[in-house]
């Protein structure tokens, strides 16, 4: 498989077939928490894309040049959490200083996803799949886009839910979870397409 088609496969599967939220059920907490308003959806998606891409790059470098030579592969989870948390804090400071508008639009959401499980999963799966540097970065970027897509789609579903009148025991979170399950089922339809397209 050529490099380009492999990148395309990663892109397609991360956004559709292997979507972190709707297929792998990671990062459900921000998915339910921030999907009420469209504006906060956009902010959160932006922050997730940003952090996932950066974290993929940095953790790949840390893993390859620090952990493999020292034989510490089994420590990846704890070291990645540490590195990602520090990275997000660092990026926040840099943004605050140099790119004020970006800081103000992402600011609230950055600390929220410091140690989010979806972000950690991206970096760990990069290692598990033996991706090279470019592939890891693309994987992080597209996983973030997939997260954003799920968030924005679900925001629309929730807007419709607000006008619906479910039975009393289903009001609030229960009906939201049912709706999330239905949204996730639509994404199950993509399974199998990716391999045929790019395989």
């Amino acid at each position: 498989m050529s490099e380009v088609s492999k990148l395309l496969l990663i892109t397609f599967s991360m956004i559709f077939t292997e979507n972190y939220v709707l297929v792998q059920f990671l990062g459900i907490c921000p998915f339910l928490g921030v999907s009420k308003e469209f504006d906060s959806c956009l902010g959160m998606s932006g922050a997730v894309i940003f952090v996932m891409t950066l974290a993929s790059a940095v953790t790949w470098l840390v893993y390859t040049f620090l952990m493999v030579p020292l034989g510490l592969e089994y420590m990846s989870t704890i070291i990645f959490i540490l590195v990602i948390a520090a990275l997000v804090q660092f990026v926040e400071i840099v943004l605050k200083k140099f790119i004020r508008p970006l800081y103000e639009s992402l600011g609230v959401y950055l600390p929220l996803i410091t140690t989010n499980c979806a972000v950690l999963a991206v970096t760990l799966l990069n290692i598990e799949e033996h991706y090279n540097f470019i592939e890891s970065v693309v994987d992080g970027l597209t996983a973030g886009i997939g997260f954003g897509l799920a968030l924005i789609l679900f925001c629309g579903v929730r807007k419709a839910l607000e006008r619906a009148k479910p039975p009393k025991p289903f009001e609030g979170l229960p009906i939201t979870l049912v709706a999330a399950a239905l949204t996730s089922m639509t994404f199950m339809g993509f399974v199998g397409i990716a391999d045929r397209l790019f395989g």
Binding site: L70, I79, L82, V83, I93
Partner: peptide, 17 residues
């Protein structure tokens, strides 16, 4: 080794911040 490396990574991150 694991303890030292983790400590070192944490120290570097902390200093950086």
């Amino acid at each position: 080794i694991a303890v030292i490396v983790l400590g070192a990574v944490a120290l570097v991150c902390g200093l950086l911040l």
